[in-house]
Design a protein around this nucleic acid. Sequence first.
DNA 1: TGTTTTTTAATTGTGTACAACTTAATTTTG
DNA 2: CAAAATTAAGTTGTACACAATTAAAAAACA
Lengths: 142, 142
Amino acid sequence: MKEILKLENQLCFHIYALSRKITSMYQPFLANLGITYPQYLVMLVLWEKESVNVKELGDCLLLDSGTLTPLLKRLEKNKLITRTRSDKDERIVIISLTQQGKKMEEQAANIPLQFSKHIKSCNVNPKYLQKLVKEVTGVIYQ
Amino acid sequence: MKEILKLENQLCFHIYALSRKITSMYQPFLANLGITYPQYLVMLVLWEKESVNVKELGDCLLLDSGTLTPLLKRLEKNKLITRTRSDKDERIVIISLTQQGKKMEEQAANIPLQFSKHIKSCNVNPKYLQKLVKEVTGVIYQ
DNA sequence: TGTTTTTTAATTGTGTACAACTTAATTTTG
DNA sequence: CAAAATTAAGTTGTACACAATTAAAAAACA
């Protein structure tokens, strides 16, 4: 077969596989909180900004309303956020943290450290990964 | 908020976002072939090995039968592959390329080059990405 | 001002992902 | 050999992703 088509050479595949692998490594920690990985990303944004609309959330996470609307409805159902239409602009839906959602930040605070320990136990060098972060960030936000 | 919880600092998020971005960049080329990105990965394995079983495919792509079985049924429906039970071991399903599936390799051969041009037009440095491949490979297959 | 355009979310439909479970076939082992 | 354990695919249910479309509201503009 053509060398250029070999799976090993496919940048995309390795990023794709790594992404799923990292997500699965977070899973046990997030299961304790009762949220999924994409839901965790939404919570990260809210802990940072307190309240955002769907558009802003989509800009932060590079996701569209087709993905976010049902996800946000699930977070609302689990009483972690509220969804309310803006008075000034009826098109806009504002996402805010509930008390329960705010309180979750405390429990989440130790996840990065736990994850880093977990990575170490998998013989993955955390510094290696930190270097990756910088490079990947550069690729996404050129 | 706690610095360690900021989205910017989340390795996982950047890998996740990059993975989706790369997949979307492949999409126009794959649409010409009428396949999706995960289907393309399966085709890559088959162009390399001619024929594999579901287990082997899962090992290559780090996917389980819950993902692969319906995906393979779609490829079969589109007449790109065949699925047949092994005679020696009735548990095993062998995936093989059809003539049409084999022929697709010709059209696919120019995708990596086109993709590389596309990346350039997005001001992403291909060498940067090539460096990433090596590092990411190292992380996945420690 | 009224019409066109743009913006924001939601909806619909298709296709992954993956955990948990099932079923059937093969291996292992007492 | 027969019971137990393991293996391979498939099934079920939940949750993303995302293209394409819709609907309503706001902004732009002729």
